[in-house]
Each structure stands twice: as C-alpha cells, then as structure tokens.
Design a protein around this nucleic acid. Structure first.
Length: 768
DNA sequence: CCTCACTGCATTTTT
DNA sequence: TGCAGTGAGG
C-alpha cells in the first residue's frame, strides 16, 4: 500500500491496526476525512493519531485541538492519549464544543454582549425566561408554547442567525411573533448576563469572524480534530472552518449513517460535503468492524441500505456469523417488559457477569421495564431521565451559587429568594424587580427597598437576612473555598433546616441529594476547580457522561447509547408510532433519521441482539394498538432466528385499526375485546381473498403493501395546501397522516401555531 | 401567601 | 400516566 511502508507496521503506535487505520494514524498534514463505521476502532485511531503527531511529528500538545460532543468522550480521549505518549498533556485541548466555547468566551468575552462573567442557562432557566418574555409581549402560551418557541429560536441560533438576520426567514405571522420573542429573549439573556447552550456556539463563532482572533487561534491550533463530525450544526461547522482556515490540518471523523441529531440542528451535509469544502482532502474508510458478529452487521447493513443520504460503507467482521437475531412479539407492554427481564435472568444463570443493555426510543419507555426489574429484584442502571442537577433541591441550591457568582442572574434570584419559603410572593417580587436600578442587580434593588422601609413585617425581616447572606458570601467564598461555601449556604440560607423540619421521607431523600452535591463540590475543589467553572461543568454535564460501562444492566435511550457497546442488547418497543416515532414519520428525512437511529441500536450489540414489540400498550393512560415497526421488514430473513410471519402477526397486532386511535374500555365506544373482534373479522376477509401470507421466504417480496397510516389516502390534500379553519383561521398543511375517518392534518396556522386537525371534525376549507 | 386538589394536556431524542 | 398549571380555602 502506498504511504504505508512496511517498517511502519512495526511502530508501537501501529500495533494491531489494519491498513486503513495505519494510514489514518500517520496522515499528519492536510485535510483528512475518516469515515468510521460503527465499531471500527475509531477512538483507537484518533488517539493514536494524536500520539503520532506528538511523538513522531514533534507537534507541541498545545497546538492540537480535539473536539467532541460529550465530556465523557473528551475524557476518554485524553486518558488514552496520555497512556500513549511520554509528555504531559495539560496543554492539549480536548473538550466538547460547548466547553471549548465557554473557555473562549471566558477569555475573550469582553467583546460579547454578556461579558465574561456570564452564567449558562439550562433548558428550565430558558423556559422561565421565555415565559416572562411571552407575558411581556402579551402572547398567549396556548398558541406560543414556550418550548416550541424556544425550539424555533434554537433553530435560528444553530444556523447562526440573530433576530435581525432571521427576518427574511420569518414569513408567516406566527414566526414573525416568534422573532419578536427571540429579540426580547436575547435582551433578557443580556441583562441577566446569561448564555443559553446555543449562545455559547453562536457568540464564539462571531468572535472568530474577527480577523485578529481568527488569526490568533488559527495560528495556535495547528492541528484540529473533530469527532462525530456528522453531528455538527452550522455554528459548529463555521467555527471549525474559521480555525482550520490557516493550516488546513483538519481531521474530521464521522459516520453519516449514525447522524441522529438532525432535530438539534445537526446538518448531515457537513460530512457529505467535506470533500467539496476541501478538494485536496484525503478520505479513508474504516469498514472492518471489531465489535459485532457478521449476522448483526448484515442486519444493520440491510436496514441502512434503505437510506438515500449516504456516502456508502460496508461493514464486515471476522468474528464469525454468530447468533441469529431474535424478534419477540408480546401481547402487551407489561408482558414485553417481563419477557425481557425473564431473558436477562436466564442469561444471568449461565453468565453472572453478562453485560446487558436495554435500549428504547424515548425515556418514558423505561418505566415499565423498571417496574418489571424491581419486581424481580434485578439491579439496574438507568441513564438519562431526570438529571441529578435538575432536581428541585439541587437547582435551588445552585441558584444561590449562581447568584453569588453572577448577581445579574434574575432567574436564579427569583428561584432562591423564596426557597425556603420566605413569604415572598408575586407581589413582593414585583416590588423588588421594580426597584432594580438601571443596569443594576436584584440584590441592589432589594437593598434599596429595605433602606426606604418599603417592606413590612415578615418580608422585611427575612429579606434583611437574605441580603446579608449575599453580602457575606463573597468573603466566605474566599475564606472557605468551594465546598465550604456550599456548606455555608446550606446552613445560612435555612434551606437545610427547612428540609429537616419537614421530616418526611421525601425531604430525607432531598437532604441526601444535597449531601451528594456537597461531595461533588468537594471533589471539584480538590481538583482546583473554582466556583464559576464548577457551575459551567454542572450545566454542561450530559446524560451520556454518567454512563458507567461497568454496569451489568443499563437502561437508556438509543441516543444515549451511541458510541457504546454491549455483548447483549435488547431493543424494545419495535412498533409503528413508537419507533419510528410518530412525529418523525411525517417526512422522508425524519424517517431516514429514525432508520439511522435503528442502525445505531443494532450496531451496539456485540454477540446477541433481541428485538421486541407489543401488540397493545398503554400510552399516556390510554390503551393503544400498534403495528410492528416497518423497520423489522428491513432485516433480512436469514439474519433472524425465525421469520417474522407478517400476515399472522399483523392479524393479531390489529392491522386495519387506525394507528393513533384509542379505545377507552367500555366508555362510550368499543371495548378492546370488541375492537379486536372487528379486526379479526377484517383480517379473516383479507385472508380469504389473499394467498396464505405466512410464507416465510416470500414475505419480503410482498412488500410495499400500502401502509395506510404513512401514505395519505387518495383525495387528501397534499402538504403546502392553504386551508382555512373556522376555529384557527388561515393556515398551511405541513403534513397529513391516516386515511378515511382517521385522516389527520398537521396545519401551521398563521395565528395559532401548529395544530393537528382530524379532517372529519376540523371543517377545513381549501383556500383559493 | 401557602397548600391542596382538580383538570387538562402532553412524550421524542440532548449539549 | 403523571405533571404542570389553576383555583378554592385556610
């Protein structure tokens, strides 16, 4: 192989590497695109390449910048490089995009609207600020759902558009209103001296547009490496372009088939177009998989082959064919969970140490699994869900610390001023906020109010103490360090006391959480972390960061599982509307992303993959019938332990029932039993007409049997149709689903935002 | 101003 | 199902 002289294979850094991997490791200069299939030893290649640069090319660690998406990935990368090289790596920049940006903004932030002592707002802070904004603009939350508005704003930010710049994108009245909210929201953030997650990227990208800074940092980072490049959004893309413009030593690693963050603004084109951005780029494909058996890879390849947005890779393995993939259809969600638990118990009987993961599409699906696991006393590790730092008591405590760190943070002020309860309600709060001097802080406003004697009774007494707390906090911070400050705040605020007074089991749990927080602070302090950095870390901590790979049984979403591997993997909830998710189903791109997600799920498995579904399931309190996921059809029959007998299975799963229709037992309509009867009758008629559908070898050919729920029925209005509703006014059809009586449109109304309208009831009229 | 109870509504996925 | 937002009563 050219460029792969035989002597290189003997190099310690090349040990156990295949030819493309070696090529990637020693490619030092010029742009490089590494298309790393799942399980192809990507991290090994990246870390050895960094080691190679340092040891063989003599590159100073301080000139290397490596970007990842999670802290965990960053830490692992740093650790592994450190084991390979002989020099200390303090100067090496390995960090997530977000912490990289935070670091830059803390250094150079004088040039941004929020200065360098900003706080980072997490989603709940964003939401409370947004509510404030919507109230101020008199926008009803019914039509301007705070989360939805924030989503649209986030979209703009991910594309590097500030309010003024997004104007031509905002065509309909609804979006124009959102733009007003965006503008006010940014002003709010500014006066709080706060950044949300997106601002970190956006502001940093702005900074790097300045020639002076671009040159300074571009010069400094002579070698840049980006992991998970397929997940970068526009802001991240531009950021990297700015930095790499100088030296062109940009190595990006990614896999377009594992791009699963499109909804967060990730743009798969970034990786698809890398060759266009850097025509001289070298492309290396890593296709040998060291993780899974061939059977698992066959299934994965066959599934992903249904996607169009690809560069194309074919994974192969020399680990042998391995076990067949099992699919189990159960009657009901609870039985599915119990079946999975039963299989795990059997597994444990032969291999007590077996590492198992149960993966699902959305967090709510963990509940039934947890119940089944607890019933059998099986310990497990749940990843994601309610995060530690988002718990009420922890957030309360954090709000004190944030206010100490940045007194302009009004959201935190509002939170801690009445936690524990100090008799400050909306009235007093409004008074305080009204007293805030121009460009001043809430604490100053409060001090003013007290001086003028405008607070009476309990409020006066409590607020005096509250203010005193913050007067002394700075001193305590100096004198006691991080952990000392936390302990002091817990005591002096009366927060701990109020929990102790409660004396309930719940309060005890909260106290334990606060103690855990305290030890986290102590640990950070021992590492020399200061308050503001500690707060940054907390808010930028990700779900994926808390994965313990030593756990024997892990429950997590597929998103969280990306990058991980497990000998035994269960993927549960393989049903239409669950996976693929109901909302993603509407568009081809959405469906392709779901399929990539399934691909990610499959390729987590090393030895054994089990897929399960349920015919009936309680979702949001109502009984739903679901059809098996269309993705199951994309798995080759040869890879399965037993063929999926579609005719029969669909029969029992309730083909012919409108997905999304629900039955309330007895009440006013059909019971589940009579509904099933109806379905059986329907299917009996189908079976009478059609040939025996259970032919195991033929089921893949009878394919594209119309899928009534995804294809709008004939006569349905296509997307883009302008309509009028008596209730919501003028709008435009964004999507449609179902057929017949179930035909449902998703309509973006000019005034009312997006609504789902059942055609039969909605009285929609076409507009000329 | 706080607490409790009721109702109505929503579930993707996360740095 | 469970949470969050609202309203009545203490």
């Amino acid at each position: 192989m050219p460029g792969d002289a035989p002597d290189l294979s003997d190099h310690p850094l090349m040990k156990h590497l295949n030819a493309p991997q070696r090529e990637a490791v020693c490619h030092a200069h010029g742009p490089l695109l590494i298309l790393a299939g799942a399980g192809s030893g990507k991290t090994t290649v990246i870390t050895r390449r960094i080691a190679w640069l340092i040891e063989e090319e003599g590159v100073h660690p301080g000139s290397i910048l490596a970007m990842t998406f999670t802290n965990k990935a960053a830490e692992e990368m740093r650790d592994r490089v450190q084991r390979l090289v002989s020099v200390p790596l303090e100067q090496l920049w390995v960090s997530t995009f977000h912490s990289f940006c935070t670091r830059i903004l803390r250094r150079e932030g004088d040039r941004t609207p929020v200065g360098r002592d900003f706080v980072i707002f997490d989603p709940s802070d964003q939401k409370s600020l947004m509510k404030q904004v919507l109230a101020e603009l008199h926008l009803p939350e019914k039509q301007f759902h705070p989360r939805k508005v924030l989503e649209v704003i986030s979209d703009f930010k991910n594309r590097c558009l500030l309010p003024e710049e997004a104007r031509e994108e905002a065509l309909d009245p609804w979006t124009r209103k959102v733009l007003e909210a965006y503008d006010l929201y940014q002003k709010g953030l500014r006066s709080h001296r706060a950044c949300d997650f997106d601002d970190l990227l956006l502001y940093t990208e702005r900074l790097f547009r300045e020639p002076a800074l671009q040159t300074a940092y571009g010069d400094r980072f002579k070698f840049i490496l980006v992991d998970e490049y397929q997940d970068t959004n526009r802001a991240q893309y531009l950021l990297v372009q700015h930095l790499a413009r100088r030296h062109h030593n940009l190595c990006v690693v990614g896999d377009e088939d594992q791009s699963i963050y499109g909804w967060r603004g990730a743009d798969i084109r970034n990786i698809l177009d890398f060759q266009r951005d850097f025509p001289e780029a070298v492309q290396i494909k890593l296709e040998q998989n060291y993780r899974s058996t061939q059977r698992i890879l066959d299934a994965a390849s066959s599934v992903i082959a249904n996607n169009s947005q690809r560069l194309g890779k074919t994974l192969w393995s020399d680990l042998g064919h391995g076990e067949s993939i099992v699919f189990k259809l159960t009657d009901e969600g609870r039985l599915e969970a119990e079946w999975v638990v039963q299989r795990i118990l059997e597994l444990r009987a032969t291999d007590a140490e077996a590492k198992v993961a149960v993966l699902y599409r959305a967090n709510w699906q963990s509940r039934q699994l947890e119940e089944a696991l607890r019933a059998r006393n099986l310990p497990y590790r749940l990843v994601g869900g309610v995060k530690f730092y988002e718990r009420q008591e922890v957030k309360d405590l954090i709000s004190y610390l944030r206010l100490v760190s940045n007194p302009f943070d009004l959201v935190s002020f509002r939170r801690c001023v009445n936690a524990p309860s100090r008799g400050v309600g909306p009235t007093t709060l409004a008074k305080i906020e009204g007293a805030i001097p121009e460009g001043g802080t809430a604490l100053e406003g409060l001090a003013d109010l007290l001086r003028r004697g405008e607070l009476k009774g309990r409020a006066q007494r409590e607020m005096g103490r509250f203010l005193e707390l913050f007067r002394r906090a700075a001193g305590e911070r100096e004198a006691q360090g991080l952990a000392g400050l936390v302990r002091w705040v817990l005591q002096e605020s009366g927060y701990l006391q109020s929990l102790e007074d409660e004396g309930t089991l719940e309060a005890e749990g909260r106290i334990r959480n606060l103690e855990e927080f305290l030890s986290a602070a102590a640990e950070a302090e021992s590492l020399g972390v200061r308050l503001s950095e500690f707060l940054d870390r907390i808010t930028l901590a990700a779900d994926a960061d808390q994965v313990e790979e030593s756990a024997h049984l892990s429950l997590m979403t597929i998103h969280c599982a990306k990058g991980l591997e497990f000998p035994y993997v269960f993927v549960v909830g393989m049903e239409e509307d669950v996976f693929p998710n109901r909302n993603a189903r509407e568009t081809p791109e959405g469906l392709e992303e779901e399929r990539r997600l399934f691909y990610v799920a499959i390729t987590r498995a090393q030895r054994r993959l089990t897929l399960t579904a349920a015919r009936r399931r309680r979702i949001m309190g109502t009984e739903m019938l679901g059809m098996p996921s269309r993705f199951l059809r994309e798995i080759p029959a040869e890879a399965l332990q037993a063929p999926i007998r579609w005719g029969t299975e669909l029969y029992q799963a309730g083909e012919g029932v409108r997905p999304g229709s629900s039955f309330t037992r007895g009440a006013g309509g059909a019971s589940v039993a009579t509904e099933l009867q109806r379905i059986r009758g329907f299917f009996d008629r189908v079976r009478a007409q059609a040939e025996e559908p259970a032919d195991p070898s033929g089921h893949r050919d009878e394919q594209p049997e119309p899928e009534p729920e995804s294809r709008p029925a004939a006569g349905a209005w296509p997307g883009g149709t302008r309509v009028r509703s008596p209730r919501f006014g003028r709008g435009i059809i964004v999507a449609s689903s179902g057929s017949g009586d179930g035909l449902t449109y998703t309509v973006r109304f000019a005034e009312a935002g997006e609504k789902r309208i059942v055609a039969r009831f909605g009285m929609l009229e076409k507009e000329g």
